[in-house]
Design a protein around this nucleic acid. Structure first.
Lengths: 327, 327
DNA sequence: CTGAAAGCGCTAACAA
DNA sequence: TTGTTAGCGCTTTCAG
C-alpha cells in the first residue's frame, strides 16, 4: 500500500480510503488509485485490515464426524454448498474444519485465536453437551441439527418429527403394516424421526415393534450382515423407513440382492432427497429438506449470535417426495 | 497476551516465547504461563502473529463449477476431505471457496490479499488457460485434474487414459463389442478417459462409433430423454463406460426403467468408485482413484510451489474394481 | 534467560 | 479533501 501511495503521490491514508470507497475521496482520485492498484495486482491485506478494524470476515464451518467416511454423504455437501453461497453473499470467507471427538478443543480455539468470528456446525451427533458448554462460554454458533430442549445454541433443522411422521403415514396409506425403522436414535435428528414414526403408527393403532428398529451406520461393512441376520430371523416386515437416502439406497441394494423386490415386497422411504434419488430404479421416495434455505438460515442465526442477540431456532418444513420405491 | 504477561509478572516477549515453545524459556516458566493461558481460554491471535511473521497458515481450496448442482458428486467431497486432512497434518487451515466463471478474478485476489498462501483447485473444467495465466503470475497452485501438455501449474490426477483403457478392456474381455462412452470429452479428464477407451477398442480391432459417444452432464434433466432417444434410434450397444459413478448409477436406473437388465443386457462401468457403488444392486464396477494419496499429493505440490520450486505433476494409478455390473 | 523497542500492513482519530 | 500519528496483537532483534 505504501508503494501505491508513493506512485500515486498521496498518503497511505488516501489510498486506504480510496480503496475502501470512502465518500471523502473524489471520484477522480479514487479512480486513479484503483487503476494503479489494479495494474499492480494489489489487494488490501485483509489480515492486517481486520487486525486494525478489530473484526473478522471469516466464519468457521465445522463438520463433525469420526472419519472420512462419515462425511461422504452428499447431503452434507449440499448444506456445505448452501452455507458457502450464503456467506459469499455477505462477503464472508469460510474456514472449513473436520473434527472428531478427540479434537473437540479445536472448535473453541478457532474463535479464541481470532481466526473466525463464529462457528457453523454440521453434524450434531452426540456433541450436544460440549456444544452447550461452548455456547455458555460465549462462542457464537449456529448448528444444523435437531433442536434439543435445553440447547443454549442456535439451531437450524428440518422438522424431523414431521418428516418421520409423513414418511410413516405414507407407508401406512400404501398398505404397509410392519414398518422397520433404520436409524441410530441416539442421534438427535434420527431420534425425532423415530418419534414421528411412532406417532404415525399410533394413529393407525399400531405399536412399534422393537425388533423392527435397527440402529445402524451407513458405510458399516456389517450392513449386509445385519440384513442377513434380519432375514434369517424371519422377521416379518413390509416396509422400511431409513433415516438417510444413502442408507435407503444401500438397503434397497441389499434387499434386491436377496431377491426381494422394491416396492413389491418391501416399500422403502429415505431421507434427505439427494439428487441421485430421482435417477435410481426404482426412484426413491424421500423426505426433502430445504438445503438452500437452511444455509441462509444458519448464516443468519450465526450473525445474530455474533451480534450478541439471543439464541433462536429455525425449523424448516419437511416435504415428502413420493416416487417409485413406495408405489 | 498483555493480560497474561501482567498476571504472570513477566513481559509479553516471555509469554510469546513460552507459548510458542521457545527453548529459551525454562520448563517451569513455560508450564506456568501455559496453565494461565489455558485457564483464561487464551489463544494466540493467529492473524496478528502471521502479520508479524509474514507468513500465512492458510490455504485456499477452490471448487470450480457453475452451480450448486455441479458439486453434488460425492467424489468431490472425498477429495476435499482428503485435502482437509492432509492440511491438518501440517497445521494449516483451509479456506473454502466455490467459484463460477464470472468470478474467476477472486482466485488471484485470495492470494494477493494475503488471505491464503496458495490455492488448491478442484474441477479443472475448461479453465486451463486462466489457470495458466495465474500460474505465470506466480500464484502458487496445485490442481486436481488432467495434466495438460502446456500446463504451467502443478497437477495431481488419476491416470485417466489408463483408467479408460482398463475399463474398456475389461468390458471387451467380458464379451462386449458395442461399448458406448458417456462423458464430455471437452473436459480434460473425460477426454483422456476417452483416449484410453479408443486405445482399448483399437487393440481389439474395433473402431469407436461416434454415435456411441454421448457427451452428457450429470443432473441434466434431459438424461432420461437422451436415453430414450438412443433406444428409439435402435442404436445397438451392449455396454456403457460412464465417466463418473453418479452418471453410471443414473444410467443403470434409466436402463432398468426401460426393462434392460444390467449386466445381462448391458454391462456398465463407472468411474471414481464412490462408497455407494459397493452397496447397490447390481454393485457397480468402477475405476478407483486414490483420494487420500491425492489429497496429500495436492498439499505437497502446493507447498513446493509456495517454496518457489518448479512445477511438478503427480499421476496416480487407476485401479479397476470389478463388481456385479459387468459380471 | 529476560525485557525494551521496533514494526508487520493497515485504518481511524485528529489536525490541517 | 488530505496527511500525520498512533496502535490493532503479535514476534523478534538487540541489549542486558
Amino acid at each position: 500500500m505504501a508503494d501505491i501511495a508513493r506512485l500515486a503521490g498521496v498518503s497511505a491514508s488516501t489510498v486506504s480510503r480510496a480503496l475502501s470507497g470512502s465518500p471523502l475521496i473524489p471520484e477522480a482520485t479514487r479512480e486513479r488509485i484503483a487503476e494503479l492498484a489494479r495494474s499492480l495486482n494489489y489487494q488490501v491485506n485483509v489480515g492486517a485490515a481486520n487486525l486494525r478494524k478489530r473484526d473478522i470476515q471469516t466464519v468457521g464451518i465445522v463438520i463433525l464426524g469420526d472419519s472420512m467416511q462419515t462425511i461422504s454423504d452428499p447431503f452434507i455437501l449440499n448444506i456445505l454448498g448452501a452455507v458457502a453461497d450464503a456467506l459469499d453473499e455477505r462477503g464472508m470467507s469460510l474456514l472449513l474444519t473436520r473434527l472428531n471427538q478427540e479434537r473437540q478443543g479445536q472448535m473453541a480455539a478457532m474463535v479464541d485465536s481470532g481466526q473466525v468470528a463464529g462457528l457453523i456446525v454440521i453434524g450434531q451427533l452426540t456433541w450436544h453437551d460440549y456444544l452447550n458448554e461452548l455456547a455458555r462460554r460465549g462462542i457464537p454458533m449456529a448448528v444444523w441439527g435437531a433442536c434439543l430442549p435445553d440447547a443454549f445454541y442456535s439451531t437450524v433443522g428440518g422438522d424431523n418429527a414431521s418428516g418421520g411422521y409423513l414418511a410413516t403415514r405414507h407407508l401406512l396409506l400404501q398398505g404397509a403394516r410392519r414398518i422397520a425403522f433404520f436409524g441410530d436414535t441416539s442421534h438427535p435428528e434420527a431420534g425425532l424421526r423415530y418419534q414421528g414414526y411412532v406417532r404415525a403408527l399410533g394413529e393407525a393403532g399400531l405399536q412399534p415393534d422393537p425388533r423392527l428398529h435397527q440402529p445402524f451406520l451407513f458405510g458399516d461393512r456389517r450392513i449386509r450382515q445385519v440384513i442377513d441376520l434380519w432375514l434369517d430371523q424371519k422377521l416379518d416386515f413390509d416396509a422400511i423407513f431409513a433415516s438417510s437416502d444413502i442408507a435407503a439406497i444401500s438397503l434397497i441394494g441389499a434387499l434386491q440382492e436377496r431377491g426381494l423386490e422394491v416396492p413389491r415386497d418391501v416399500r422403502v422411504v429415505g431421507y434427505d432427497d439427494i439428487t441421485l434419488s430421482t435417477y435410481l430404479h426404482p426412484s426413491l421416495t424421500s423426505v426433502r429438506q430445504p438445503t438452500i434455505v437452511a444455509g441462509r438460515a444458519l448464516v443468519e442465526l450465526l450473525f445474530e449470535a455474533i451480534a450478541g442477540q439471543p439464541r433462536r431456532t429455525v425449523m424448516l418444513p419437511a416435504e415428502l417426495v413420493v416416487r417409485d420405491s413406495t408405489a
